[in-house]
Amino acid sequence: MSMDEKKIRLRLEHISQSYVVKNEVRCAVDDVTLDVYDNEFLVVLGPGHCGKSVLLNIIAGIEKPVAGQMFLDGGRLLKSDERIGMVFQKLALMPWKTVMANVEFGPEVRGVAKGERRAAAQKYIDLVGLTGFEKAYPNELSGGMKQRVGIARAYTNNPEILLMDEPFGQLDAQTRYAMQEEIMKIWEMEKRTLVFVTNNIEEAVYLGDRIVLLTRCPGRVKQVYPIGLPRPRDTVDPQFLRIRKEISQNTDLAL
């Protein structure tokens, strides 16, 4: 099935965002138009401070754009929506709550009965490979394990659209590879429409069905790359390295 026939879940039309800094208007996101297809793994790639997190915050309804419109399944998206969930780089896990209590927090706040929310939380704790750690506290976990908790928590809210903001940005290179393999496994078992933000080209090529490359600040869509490589992808495959190089050559050196 080609992308054209795929169902559009999320549509961004001419989204712009700017801030006033020291009496000057600074543009962060400039006229971004983008479709995200059903069950697509879309990667938004850009250098530091290019407005990619701002774009994600706008989709999540955390901030309002100065211009442009968004649609979810054809309906206007004006504020934060239960159908959209987010995983942050800085996880904001509650340190005084166990893994289970962190993961089931969303449904608990919404008043879901204990048995039901426990079952959902347990399902995703198992899925991310944290079985046996339900009673552990965040400070007892490694960086990669904390990220798993964040992913399980987002899934437990059962969103249709999952947003991930550089979730692996603070992990070492090896743990990062491990988590990339892990998120791919989880996504293949539990397909969601996923928008994943990163500044790491290799990570983008490993994960994405499509990569949307943004320019440096303000963020504009520079190019969209469909990645046709079969999964699981091999980071030293010549094709993989060729695409990584092609994208790398199309980015600015952010010294």
């Binding site: 250098p47 940005g169 603070q170 992990l171 070492d172 290179a173 990062r176 500044n199 790491n200 080209i201 290799e202 990584r244 790398s248 980015t251 050196l253 952010a254 010294l255």
Partner: peptide
């Protein structure tokens, strides 16, 4: 000790 931590490939190669 990992002076280039998580910098991106382009920057890292430079």
């Amino acid at each position: 000790d990992e002076p280039y931590g998580q910098m991106d490939v382009k920057l890292r190669f430079y």
